[in-house]
Write a protein that binds this DNA or RNA. Structure first.
Lengths: 330, 330
DNA sequence: TTGTATGCGTTATCAT
DNA sequence: ATGATAACGCATACAA
């Protein structure tokens, strides 16, 4: 690939003038500009971001570290982030951790080696974030936060989501509500459960601990737990599933047992389900403001890149309850 | 972030020795090595890939240009590619074109500006590929190819997929087979249709052109076309949908009309459907060897990066028909 | 408006 | 086994 030198030579100007045309076009004379442009065309010249990054100590690329692009929630989010970042002249280096702490650390260091200007991370391990802080890296947390760490983040108000969903079920007359959740380690899981608890307490309903199923946020486990749960003598009248994958596992198990939603059991899920469009009844679910989650993430990291001492931003966005046909009054 | 200079100073050796430890560890004395390692630890040193890339004229990063990570087929493929590439010390710069020719060109040039060692592309416009050739860029085509261009590629044998799927439907007694397809512009769409044609011709069945529905590979259009199609006096007994999205649209429309699969109409789809797991009946479908599609793509581009004059590779992978319950004998 | 000199962080070459 | 020096492609300060 041609360099700035080749262009300068061909246009019979100095390298600096070429560089100027790239960075401060207003100060270069029209004739020179034309000659240079012509030379660039002929040589298929593209300024090297590598050399440019080295000189400017800015790469204009963002590192994105997240659990898994295969997850519908995350890939939608990533696309929003990418689109928005591209408008602002940023490229994206992408890594998937599969919630493996070691991968996460390795990838973070890889990003740093690439000298990304900032890291946008949906983290798993708190240790990773502590490392980011310690190493002076600029970064923004998305979705999964750690309450005791003083860092920039944008997330959904998962507490509110859990709370409102539960209130809705209660308003329909449900008392025996089961929960399909994770281990409570990651923030959204913990918060949604807290919201659930609060709604139950407020309305004076006793939580039946036997109906709080730890499924590790996993489809397969949700399937198994559902089989066990729904074959009990005293079944729940409603199930609150904490993500789309578990909703899938639940539905599959329920179908195999021969029960119907919502006649035999109501279902309320967090996030959309894959294939949501074709499944009947329409599942009542809580959605997150994915686009905003992407745009805020970019704005925040961009702001911090601009000035390291910009104010700390901690944003909670409102979730929204979409009412379908999977919950009935009892 | 600390540089190689800081490390050298702290370890009381020259920069070169530090660099050597990084690149040719075997030639540096154990004592020096230890001192350097210690200094690196203390300084949280990560060698700058930027400076390294500039000096070596190799970035060890790959540009991935594809239509859309949201598409389940592509995101599974991307994950396979990423995992495999990471093992081989390559990072991935990712861009989504949404099949917009302008975006595609812009992104390709962006990748070149970043001096990626090679580009892995699922293209839309032939023009993009012609540019890649003209500019001397190393690249590999995945999934969508152009038969008359002499370039490296790996794709599924879509012709065979279309052929075998159609033969299967015919073997079940179907004669009036409708097709939900795209515009025939991209390779997989065109090939699948050719395979369909061949199977029909071989068995002496007349293709009813009115049942070949151009849905632009889009869910919404497939939904509309299905409504029109299935409300005709003479309905097809089977439908062959060319991708998962259109299968979704089809199913939704059929459900709304009040028909059942496969009692009223059989369905055979290409690729998996989102939410496949919970939809009943299980949809009979053709799957592609996604993992191989990722690994071959990497191996090929890696090979070409190693030596520009390596032999041209053009690989067709076999698709596989997965029989479910969505097609019945008539 | 344009050019000269220098530096960005690393590697390669040639010495020692 | 180690070091001095130049080079990678570009941007910036300063000079003209």
């Amino acid at each position: 690939m041609a360099t700035i030198n080749d262009v300068a030579e061909k246009a019979k100007v100095s390298v600096v003038t070429v560089s100027r045309l790239l960075n401060h076009p207003e100060v270069v004379n029209a004739k020179s500009a034309e000659k240079i442009h012509k030379a660039m065309e002929e040589l298929h010249f593209q300024p090297s971001q590598i050399a440019r990054s080295l000189a400017k100590r800015r790469t204009n690329t963002l590192g994105v570290v997240m659990p898994d692009v295969k997850n519908p929630f995350f890939n939608k989010w990533f696309r929003c982030l990418e689109e928005y970042a591209t408008i602002h002249q940023f490229s994206m280096l992408l890594c998937n951790t599969d919630d493996d702490p070691e991968k996460e650390m390795r990838y973070i260091k890889l990003m740093q080696a690439h000298r990304v200007d900032g890291i946008v991370i949906v983290p798993y391990a708190k240790k990773s974030i502590e490392y980011l802080i310690k190493s002076g890296q600029k970064f923004v947390l998305v979705d999964r936060i750690f309450k005791d760490l003083e860092v920039d983040f944008v997330t959904t108000d998962h507490f509110r989501g859990g709370y409102e969903a539960t209130r809705y079920l209660i308003s329909l007359g449900h008392r025996r509500i089961a929960v399909l959740r994770g281990e409570g380690y990651i923030f959204p899981d913990a918060e949604r459960y807290s919201g659930f608890q609060k709604a139950m307490q407020e309305t004076g309903i006793q939580i039946d601990e036997n109906m709080i199923m730890n499924c590790g946020l996993d489809e397969g486990k949700a399937y198994q737990q559902t089989k066990e749960l729904m074959n009990r003598e005293e079944r729940p009248t409603a199930v609150f599933s904490f993500n789309g994958l578990m909703s899938l596992g639940f539905i599959q198990a329920v179908q195999e047992i021969g029960l119907s939603i919502p006649q035999d059991v109501s279902l309320l899920g967090f996030d959309e389900i894959q294939g949501y469009g074709i499944f009947r009844p329409k599942v009542t679910h809580v959605i997150q403001p994915i686009k905003s989650l992407g745009e805020f993430a970019f704005d925040m990291i961009a702001e911090r890149i601009k000035k390291a001492d910009s104010v700390r931003q901690q944003i909670f966005l409102k979730p929204l309850l979409i009412v379908g046909d999977s919950c009935i009054q009892i």
